[in-house]
């Protein structure tokens, strides 16, 4: 990371703006896919835009105290933090704002931060459903984080660095240099953890939006909910970008900007689609079932990945 400049703040804001729009369009496409699988026509492509603007334009709001305010802010920080500290496109100054040497550790902390923030905010609201949902959410997040951390540890040993930029650089020069092919066991463990973090079907009972326990945001409304909805658009994109960077070779800056963006969209879209494929195919796990799943297979694969990486490198 070279010296600080005020441009970087502008670039970070632009990155977030770009990601919000990309996330909203992605949500529309995914909603359409879900509907078509269920033989429905499905939402309009721009429905997420309507939802989020409507939510920001709510006239009245109720607050329950300081932590209630800070819950969505923490949540948003979690999503935005991953984005800011992850290079979206390698070596592009606009989408590369705050990367530095140890960012893998920081980013993997940010994945957890949002849920912790919701634990504080939902607790302040005082609704029993949000308390129980936060407990369930934290338990599930902890379960899939273990295998994700093991996978990250494995590739950190493999590449001998904890900088995302360095990890991407090490994967350049051909498809076969991707972590997917050089360390498939770690990739498998991480992709199973990916399912848990995307809040899609088998593991989304924590935040099932139309069930009786809405999940942690039970008491959230108006602009608070709008903040959470904004985070819900950028967080999946941020996580997908992180996975693309760590396991699928990242996105290098090609000669043509168009080509760069096409590669970016294709890679993130198809990695995102993995969770959608699983989501439309499988019914929900209960929380205890999903925790049992996560600490059985992904954990085992993760341990094997760490051992293999330590022996090999």
């Amino acid at each position: 990371m070279d010296g600080f400049s005020y441009n970087k703040i502008l670039f970070a804001a632009l990155t977030i703006f770009f990601t919000i729009n990309y996330g909203l369009i992605l949500q529309g496409i995914i909603g359409k896919i879900y509907a078509r699988v269920g033989r429905r026509i499905g939402i309009r492509l721009f429905q997420p835009y309507f939802n989020i603007i409507r939510q920001w334009a709510t006239r009245s709001a109720i607050s329950h105290g300081v932590m209630y305010y800070l819950g969505p802010v923490f949540r948003f920080t979690g999503g935005a933090g991953i984005l800011i500290f992850t290079p979206l496109i390698l070596d592009a100054p606009l989408f590369n704002s705050f990367t530095y040497a140890g960012d893998v550790v920081l980013v993997s902390y940010f994945i957890f931060l949002g849920t912790l923030g919701m634990a504080l905010g939902g607790g302040e609201a005082g609704h029993p459903y949000s308390a129980i949902a936060v407990t369930r959410g934290l338990a599930q997040t902890a379960a899939f984080e273990i295998s994700l951390m093991l996978a990250i540890y494995s590739i950190a040993v493999q590449y001998n660095t904890i900088s995302i930029t360095e990890i991407i650089r090490a994967q350049q020069g051909g498809v076969l240099n991707w972590t997917l092919f050089t360390n498939p066991i770690a990739t498998a463990a991480a992709m199973l953890a990916f399912l848990g973090s995307m809040m899609r079907s088998p593991f989304d009972v924590v935040l099932a939006p139309q069930e009786i326990p809405v999940g942690p945001p039970t008491e959230y409304q108006s602009q608070f909910l709008a903040m959470l909805m904004t985070n819900r658009t950028i967080f999946p994109v941020a996580k997908t970008v992180l996975y693309v960077n760590l396991f699928f070779g990242g996105v290098a800056l090609y000669d043509s900007y168009l080509l760069t963006f096409v590669v970016f969209f294709l890679k993130t879209f198809f990695v995102y689609l993995w969770s959608v494929f699983v989501g439309v195919s499988f019914p929900r796990f209960r929380v205890d079932q999903s925790i049992r799943f996560f600490i059985k297979w992904p954990l085992l694969i993760g341990v094997i990945a760490v051992v293999a990486a330590n022996i090999r490198y």
């Binding site: 309009r44 429905q47 309507f50 326990p213 909910l225």
Partner: peptide, 12 residues
């Protein structure tokens, strides 16, 4: 859903 209708579980 194609008309933008969605269901929420809490009145808020």
């Amino acid at each position: 859903y194609r008309f933008g209708v969605n269901w929420r579980a809490t009145p808020r």
